[in-house]
Structure formats: C-alpha cells, structure tokens
Design a protein around this nucleic acid. Structure first.
Lengths: 124, 124
DNA sequence: GTAAAACTTAAAGCCGACTTCAAGTCAAGC
DNA sequence: GCTTGACTTGAAGTCGGCTTTAAGTTTTAC
C-alpha cells in the first residue's frame, strides 16, 4: 500500500507518516526498487496504534522506545509491558485532573446561567 | 502578597506567573511604588483558576480572551459563558478520546500478562 | 512521449507554552 | 552602609511535535 493511501485511510498527513517512521514510532517500512514506501497490513496496524496513542498525548519518546524494544524481540516483553503500564498510569492521572477541571467549568457555567436568569427577572 | 509567595503557594514558577500576566491570563496585578507586583486575594483566585484550566490543557488564547471579556464588564457575560461552554465541550471530547486509548492500553497490558503466564507454563 | 502528480531525503521553519538571559533596580538583614 | 537576594523588563532560547521547503526522481494519465 502506498503512503498516500495509508494517509487517506487513517487521516494522517503523509509528512507526518514519514516523520513518525523517521522518529521510530513505526518499524521501518519496506521500499520498492525505486525507493518508495510499501505499507503492509502490519505496518498499518502500527499506524493505527500510534494514532490512537498520540491522540491521547502519549509522548513520541515513549512510543519510539516501545517500538525499539519490539524490534529487538521477545526478550524485551517485560520492558515493553512496563512502558505500557507507565503510560496507563499517566493517562489515568491526566483524566483525573481533567475531570476536576471539567467540574469547575460546569460549576462556572451554571453560575453564569443563574446570573443571566437573575438579570431576566429584573427585567420583568 | 509578593510574587515569590504566590509562586510558592500555587507551585507555579515566578517566570510563569509573569508570563501569564503578560499574556493576559490574569488581569494586571497592582504594583508598589517601586514597581513590584502586589497580589490581592482576587489575583490569587485568578491564578488558581488559570492553574486548573492549564492543567487540563485549556489554551492560553481562550483564557486570555476570557479575561479580556471579564475586564470589559457585565456586557460580556454571555460571551464569557460561551467560551466556557466551548471549553467544556472540548474537554469532554478529549476525555472521551483518552478513555478509548486507556481501554486499548489496558487490553495490550492484559495481553502481555497472558504472554508472560504462558511462558511460565512452558517452563514447568 | 510528455506533463502533472506522487514520491524521495535532509534541513529549515513554525507554533504553543514556557524558560532563560541580560542588565538593571530595590529591599532586608547584618 | 553595604552586600545578598528578590524583583523588574524585554528579548532570546528551548522543547515537543509537527510542517514546509528545496531539489530531485518516478509513476501515471493522456
């Protein structure tokens, strides 16, 4: 599969796909004789995985480290798991923080709504 | 209150406090005759609010816009509310996205755990 | 067969959000 | 009274994560 097709399917700019590969977020993609990328299904699975992780803010470094270990083989399974566990923890904490902010936002909005209601009362 | 005290209380670097003020995330803080910042309780409330919003990734622009409207007075109540509503929506979507990623992470981790278990079985 | 579109790499540029630096003024403790 | 540390501003630097540019090659459509 060509890079433009992968770009379309996963809605990721071709430049970003190349950038991800350069940074090691995806194992190296095979090239045709003329040097063009030819994505396999496995490559696509990586792209999908990385897209999901990046959408939640998982850092480039952590993902590159994970892929590096993956490429090294089965001896790195424990280390890879540890990376995922760490990211899970980070993400859980982030969500917790955001729920707090969300609660504050909701309270403020309610406050604005009651202010508006009071203003309307005074008009009557 | 001096900037160093505010910095300590809210655990925000003094440089960041000055930066936030410069960018309009906090209404201008009063100065002493010698030009030094003297934070009131209200200023501190702003700092706390901004800290919470920033911790959830609410953008500088949106917060600056909110403060700008606040300073303009009561005619901007509706607009201010709209900013908060928009940010609430963004945050809800972000949390939703992250929960998806969290689910994927958890599934992967479980998978690694069963791989490790299987490996142990083979050792027996 | 030729022109337009898609691909390649390496390097530079950009954006948001700080962070550090330079050069100076002021305040508090001894 | 003088030194040390906290403060001031404006400008430059940094960092993560892309995005754009330049300069070239290959494929595709007509």
């Amino acid at each position: 599969m060509k890079i433009s097709e992968v770009s379309k399917i996963y809605d990721i700019p071709v430049d970003t796909l190349r950038y991800y590969e350069k940074e090691g977020l995806i194992p190296t993609v095979n090239r045709s004789q003329s040097g063009r990328r030819d994505y396999t299904q496995e490559d696509c699975n990586w792209v999908e995985f990385i897209k999901c992780m990046r959408s939640a803010g998982v850092q480039i470094d952590a993902l590159a480290q994970y892929v590096k270990l993956f490429v090294q083989g089965d001896d790195t399974i424990e280390q890879r798991k540890n990376i995922l566990v760490e990211q899970r923890k980070k993400l859980e904490e982030k969500i917790k923080e955001q729920r707090k902010t969300l609660a504050l936002l909701k309270a403020k909005i309610e406050n604005y709504e009651s202010v508006v209601l009071d203003a309307e009362k005074n008009l009557k």
